[in-house]
Amino acid sequence: MNSIKLKSRAKINLSIDVLGKRQDGYHLVEMIMQTIDLYDLIEISEREDNQIIIKSTSNEIPLDCNNLVYKAADLIRNTFDINKGVEIYIKKNIPVAAGMAGGSSNAAAILVGLNKIWNLNLSDQKLEEIGLKLGADVPFCINGGAVLASGIGEELTPIKGLSKDVCILVCKPDLFVSTKEIYECIDSKHIEKRPNNQFLIDCLKNENTRQLAENMFNVLEEVTVDKHPVIQQIEDIMTRNKALGAMMSGSGPTVFGLYENREDALKCKSILEKQFKQTFVVACEEKGVEVNG
């Protein structure tokens, strides 16, 4: 029986700008995304029957056709007329509904894994096209790294990412944020402050982490913080404890801070994890989905 193990990585946003809205309701964005070395472990095994079975260590995710991994497996199967089933096991480490593309990353891993198991020989570009049918973040999650994303998030321009020396402290408060709801509150014509993405890209290129951290900006943050003030509280704790800068990722509620050294990041982690158990110190990562033996 064919099986494969994969790492499925999370992302953070170093910026988010909303430029408008398409007729179909999707928002036009321009944002910088960076993969981090926080990952779920996924194992895919082929089944001779036609079922898609999902198992997980997490009780926070659906284990049926409502899970994006189910939709990914079903899409590949139907697109290429494959008459087999799969069992998918997800060891969940990425916080759920966190603004870190955990679900999109898992779906990306299914596309990469089934491409190998079923010898489909699809190019990355073809996988990204299929991934876009599942969600705007899925194409990015396949290869990861650092990109400037535009359009609805599917137009990806690779850029130099964060330096490996930068420590990233990630903290997810125990609350649920609806991405759809946050975006619906945004009127792109009345955004007063926006990120300067070209300046941030230059900071990354020159490894000027301090200036990057001081100028990161997410236009969704004001909306989410208004509903959930704890996000601002976490940012304040990080900046009081030597973070070069702190910001919300995606539509929230996860907050991350950039640190010059691991010791400072770990000290702040020990403060935050008394209140927020989903707190991690990680580095950036150049890969997205990784086939892991």
Rank of each mutant, 00 (worst) to 15 (best):
S58H: 09
E129Y: 14
I110Q: 05
E155N: 14
K84T: 13
Q275R: 13
L6R: 07
F280P: 02
S150H: 04
K180P: 07
L134Y: 12
F280M: 02
L132V: 11
A109I: 02
H190N: 14
I168H: 10
A146F: 08
S45G: 07
D174C: 08
H27C: 05
L156K: 12
Y89T: 05
K189C: 02
I182M: 03
K11N: 14
L114D: 05
E214M: 13
P62K: 11
E273Y: 13
N143M: 05
K164V: 09
A243V: 12
L14A: 13
K133H: 12
P173N: 00
H228K: 11
E222D: 11
K11S: 07
G144F: 04
Q34T: 07
I159F: 09
T57H: 06
K267N: 01
G250A: 00
L132N: 09
E263C: 07
T209C: 05
F199G: 01
D202S: 15
A265R: 13
E48Y: 14
A149F: 02
K172M: 03
V170C: 08
E87N: 14
Q275S: 15
I12W: 03
E154R: 09
F280V: 03
T239F: 02
G103R: 01
I191E: 04
K7H: 12
K11D: 01
K227P: 03
L162A: 09
I130N: 09
I152W: 06
